[in-house]
Write a protein that binds this DNA or RNA. Structure first.
Length: 454
DNA sequence: AGGAGGTTCCT
DNA sequence: GGAACCTCC
């Protein structure tokens, strides 16, 4: 008589290499890999549209990779605890293996699953298990730099384990939904037609890592230049767990050169999870609650102008259009565009967080919330509200002319010097909007707003 | 040992 | 402002 299968519950860990839950499940006999599309557990935090596009393709690749190893991916839809209990009853499984997640709704779901069936959670989506890096006093860190110092001490991470050669399956496979029925892809309009630079899935992640390793030694000098391919572009692959951060760490560190800045970015990713573990509602509340009294402006038309890239600030508009067209925005430009919404338009950072949640292929609850609160100055990690980025000087400083030409074609004919500020250069083309508000005026308005709350 | 108070710094 | 670490008792 064959032993009963165990369930392998995939979430944001869509890989076969260095997948601790997979290794554990295979060690116990037959495995039933399952992905549950659960829009009920996260409630209003269900995956955004761009993430769904990514998920569709990543699940396709994961199923293909599993089939090469004699397995397959079972797709089910519904509340994770109910679906897993049901699948366990169908297959005779008595245990679930999964990688642990730290979004508040996943922590709730893990508790709910554990009430119905034995759930074994594993680490591996972060450099160190979130919550495990603590201060001398034994409490979790709140500030990045001391957190990173302590985490760095514990590095490098353990060397990643390869995928198993074969994954045994059950005598009889349970039913699976058809992926197409989940309607994860856009239909009309197909806003994802420009997403073709991306290759979701573990293979695509591996290619991105390899491509990045070639220029990782220039990361420090090029990562802030949006006209250049200087960043790693690994964020969506890391978010969906198509590659583990430990794997990225070792590939990059082995490449040599000065990669410390990049490793720090991996550390920042861990830091964000540590913050949402301490403050689960970080995307919903100002960490410094005196900002609850800040007189945010309500302007649906200006919010829309920002979303659509029609603010009259070329660097902001280029970024917002790149986001819409490709599901991704260069990090330096994210900071400029976010700062512009918060300080120049004085619109609540949560509006921006929401938009990014829906439009980014790398939308991550922890990273998104931590980065928005950092930019706004409402976060646990300082950065003062009164530090207001000057979008035009940022655009010049980081040499964004080429980037603007690519994403704001109306301005493609302008010179390298005029393109950052067509109004000031007296050569704004018809069809490109005037500045929605002047820099000085916006700056003074923001400073007055923050002064008004003491 | 553990708490008070000083210092430094904050992707 | 306040977190984290240090020194001092």
């Amino acid at each position: 008589m064959e032993s009963p299968p165990t369930l392998l519950w995939f979430r944001r860990d869509l890989r076969l290499s260095y997948q601790a839950a997979l290794v554990a499940a295979v060690g116990e006999g037959p495995v039933v890999p399952v992905y549950v599309l659960d829009d009920e557990t996260p409630k209003h935090r269900r995956m955004g549209a761009a993430s769904r596009w990514w998920l569709h393709h990543s699940l396709t690749r994961l199923d293909a990779a599993l089939r090469e190893k004699g397995s397959r991916l079972i797709l089910r839809r519904g509340r994770a605890d109910a679906v897993l209990a049901e699948l366990a009853a169908e297959t005779g499984a008595r245990r679930v293996h999964a990688i642990r997640h730290y979004e508040p709704w996943w922590r709730n779901a893990e508790r709910a699953v554990a009430k119905r069936i034995e759930l074994v959670c594993h680490d591996g989506n972060y450099l160190a298990p979130p919550g495990s890096v603590t201060t001398g006093g034994g409490t979790p860190y709140k500030i990045f730099t001391p957190f990173w110092r302590a985490l760095r001490e514990r590095m490098p991470p353990a060397v990643p384990v390869a995928a198993p050669d074969a994954i045994p399956g059950p005598a009889q496979w349970p039913q699976s939904d058809a992926l197409a029925d989940w309607n994860l892809l856009p239909t009309r309009p197909n806003w994802a037609s420009g997403f073709d630079d991306w290759t979701p899935g573990e293979g695509g992640a591996r290619e991105r890592v390899a491509a990045f390793v070639d220029h990782a030694s220039r990361y420090d000098e090029q990562r802030n230049l949006p006209s250049i391919e200087g960043s790693s572009r690994l964020s969506p692959h890391l978010h969906f767990g198509e590659v583990s951060p430990a794997t990225v760490w070792h590939c990059v560190a082995d490449a040599g050169g000065s990669v410390e800045t990049f490793l720090g970015e991996l550390g920042w990713r861990d830091y964000a999870q540590n913050v949402i573990l301490q403050f689960p509602d970080y995307a919903a509340r100002n960490a410094r609650d005196r900002f609850d009294a800040l007189p945010w402006r309500s302007s649906p038309s200006e919010l829309k102008a920002w979303q659509q890239g029609r603010t009259g600030y070329p660097i902001v508009d280029a970024g917002m259009r790149q986001l819409w067209a490709t599901g991704w925005m260069h990090n330096r430009v994210r900071m400029i565009a976010a700062s512009f919404l918060i300080k120049h338009l004085l619109i609540d950072w949560r509006e921006g967080e929401r938009w990014f949640w829906d439009t980014l292929v790398d939308a991550d609850y922890g990273s998104n919330a931590v980065n928005w609160q950092w930019t706004s100055g409402t976060g646990i990690d300082s950065n003062l509200f009164v530090r207001i980025m000057a979008p035009l000087s940022q655009s010049e400083k980081f040499d964004a002319a080429g980037y603007i030409r690519r994403w704001v074609p109306e301005l493609a004919g302008l010179s390298d010097t005029a393109i950052h500020d067509p109004d000031a250069a007296g050569c704004r083309p018809r069809g490109y909007p005037a500045k929605i508000i002047g820099h000085r005026e916006a700056r003074e308005r923001a400073l007055a707003a923050v002064r008004s709350i003491g």
